[in-house]
Amino acid sequence: MATITNFLCKPPSPLPINPKFNPTYSQFSSFFTKPKPVITKLETRRTQVIIKAKAASSTRKVDSDERVQQVHSIEEFDEALKKAKNKLVVVEYAASHSYHSRKIYPFMVDLSRTCNDVEFLLVMGDESEKTKELCKRENIDQVPHFSFYKSMEKIHEEEGIGPDELVGDVLYYGDNHSAVVQLHNREDVEKLIEDHKTDQKLIVLDVGLKHCGPCVKVYPTVLKLSRQMVDTVVFARMNGDENDSCMQFLKDMDVVEVPTFLFIRDGEICGRYVGSGKGELVGEILRYQGVRVT
């Protein structure tokens, strides 16, 4: 086992960044002319955040959904992003004829009531020429489409997703409400380790990248475990591409694939797991807690 000090002294190694989202859209003229098939349908629920939604009606009653703001033009859209500052902003692009848009909308409303630190916007692409112009500017060609913004910058987007994926994305990118300790530099990591040197708790450090699909996929499991194991395990997370300090820290730790989970106890790194398998992650945590896994 190496101490954290010795571990950080290793020479840095290259860390490739492979953005998850690289879509190819069809002609914008085809947008909103006919319903698009949903890409993914998930029936399970990952976290306590998912609430059973009411059956979606054919008419949206946006005025009664006080936490979801409908925007009607480019000007309103830009103003909403500006007003949100560094909060996460989740934008759903929808169409009145889209069955899948209507189906997922109640889940977004329920999610908005749970995540008070996240702003939610709705754009009905076929509402007017102004909303069509907005969709054209944002390169939206299929619905339902979700875009995620921070500080007026688009950080992630998905199309044709189900409730599970929507919740996972919001939890991953909207970290203010998270039960997982958020680490933003090397000093944060060192302080966390120092704070738990003597309390016998295992530290599980989730290392990833902002645009890493497997990192987003496994994060709801990390959140759920952080609540279930609060008495014995401390969960923390760092995104390597958040800033230069984080990226250098990942290089110092020889992280070449993400997500990587580092297991730290008594100030020492005692192991790591690379991957996004839920069962494997749980098994590794139990193993490093000293629990026999059969």
Rank of each mutant, 00 (worst) to 15 (best):
M1Y: 01
M1I: 14
A2V: 15
N6V: 07
F7P: 04
L8C: 07
P11K: 15
L15G: 00
P16I: 08
P16W: 03
I17K: 05
N18H: 09
F21M: 14
N22Q: 12
T24D: 06
Y25E: 10
Y25A: 13
Q27I: 06
F32C: 13
T33K: 15
V38K: 12
I39R: 13
T40I: 14
T40K: 15
E43I: 10
T44G: 11
R45C: 09
I50V: 07
K52M: 08
K54L: 12
S57M: 14
R60S: 13
K61W: 01
K61H: 11
D63E: 14
E66N: 12
R67K: 14
R67M: 11
V71E: 00
S73H: 03
F77C: 01
E79N: 06
A80G: 03
A80L: 05
K82G: 03
K83Q: 05
L88N: 01
S98C: 15
Y99H: 12
K103D: 10
I104M: 11
M108C: 09
V109Y: 00
D110F: 03
L111D: 04
C115D: 08
L122R: 11
E129F: 01
K130N: 11
E133A: 09
E133M: 11
L134Q: 02
C135F: 01
K136A: 04
K136Q: 09
I140T: 04
I140F: 01
D141C: 03
D141L: 08
Q142N: 15
V143N: 05
H145A: 04
F146W: 03
Y149R: 07
I155P: 09
G162N: 12
D164I: 15
Y172R: 14
Y172N: 13
D175A: 13
N176H: 08
H177M: 14
L183E: 12
E187Q: 14
D188T: 06
E190Q: 15
K191R: 14
I193P: 05
H196N: 06
K197W: 00
L202F: 00
I203L: 09
D206M: 08
D206F: 03
K210C: 04
H211E: 12
P214H: 05
V216M: 12
V216K: 13
V218E: 10
L223F: 00
S226Y: 03
S226D: 03
R227S: 08
M229Q: 12
V230P: 10
D231K: 15
V234H: 01
A236N: 13
A236L: 10
R237N: 08
M238N: 07
G240H: 03
G240E: 02
Q248K: 11
D252R: 11
D252H: 04
D254G: 06
D254A: 06
V256G: 01
E257H: 09
E257G: 05
V258A: 04
F261K: 12
C270F: 01
Y273V: 02
G275S: 04
G277Q: 04
G277S: 07
L281P: 00
V282F: 00
G283C: 08
G283A: 06
E284M: 06
T294F: 02
